[in-house]
Write a protein that binds this DNA or RNA. Structure first.
Lengths: 156, 156
DNA sequence: GCTAGATAGTTGCGAATGTAACCATCGAAA
DNA sequence: TTTCGATGGTTACATTCGCAACTATCTAGC
């Protein structure tokens, strides 16, 4: 008898992914928080604009899977710090083109090597085969999961 | 010139892991939220106790990398629903041994196949090689990251 | 036995989050 | 040109979260 149905959490993807992602993000967030007092959404917006010099809030949200209120608040805060400016679109006045200021680009430029070093330090703990596995695994799972559900997290 | 330092977010691990973990977890959370109104921490505690029939709050927190206040509140809520009971340890009265009630085990038993089906459906989108890569990647990253920083998220 | 420091778990409080409702603007169709 | 639905972005509100401070209890050194 003893028809115990078992779910092995140690093998369960949502559980493992979350635990890992939270640990990694928490580690990394220390670096930008202690340097610039950035929150995670703020860092993400800054990093996105560092890579793509001008984007709208909606585009940033889609690209990084962030809820639009999160983006909105991050933009307000970055603007308040003088790291970001908005420019209303001429043709469509609902749209705002966001860009980093000189100071914002300075913060970004200082963070780039910090971020790359973080990643290098993490990957250095893996051998070549494991690194390949990480890249393939993320690619495959992203392909399987990310496009299927609407990017904007409209549900919790 | 143009010494633009660049961080490619699309290749940056904290960013990718987080985006993926959030998407997967959000998908899966629908299943237990719509059935039982469970929150994520509550589901985690329930699932942990389903697998390990009796544990303390601290042990659950360590095992699942949850902050102790999260565990504490999840326990209160599960107890309120009649899905969990506490039993103070005889030798050390600070410690409470948690266990699912009959009703709690019922919820767990119903969720096990749902969870396994979710994982199977996700993995079905991958071929054999990709599945291997996922397992190896998670194992390697967990080994590299999880033990190194104290499990209890004492810092954000 | 007493005191000092550690540990299990809870609570208060401010900060962050998601949802829904909202405002402004746009494009298209009547 | 008026109206209606869609879209970009913000705000209000309730919930959730994490840290710090707390209570209760235990252990070890004196």
């Amino acid at each position: 008898m003893a028809d115990e149905p078992i779910l092995s959490l140690e093998d369960f993807l949502p559980y493992r992914l979350n635990r890992l992602a939270e640990a990694v993000s928490r580690d990394f967030s220390k670096l930008y928080r202690e340097r610039y007092g950035l929150t995670r959404p703020e860092w993400r917006v800054l990093a996105t604009l560092g890579e793509f010099p001008t984007m709208t809030a909606t585009e940033i949200g889609t690209h990084s899977s962030m809820h639009k209120t999160k983006v909105s608040r991050a933009v307000v805060e970055l603007e308040r710090h003088g790291w970001l400016t908005r420019k209303t679109d001429d043709a469509d006045r609902r749209v705002e083109h966001l860009a980093l200021t000189k100071a914002g680009r300075g913060v970004y430029r200082e963070m780039v090597p910090v971020a790359n070093a973080f990643q290098a330090r993490l990957l250095a703990k893996l051998d070549e085969k494991q690194r390949d596995a990480v890249m393939m695994a993320l690619g495959a799972l992203e392909f399987a999961e990310l496009p299927l559900q609407g990017n904007m997290p409209a549900e919790q």
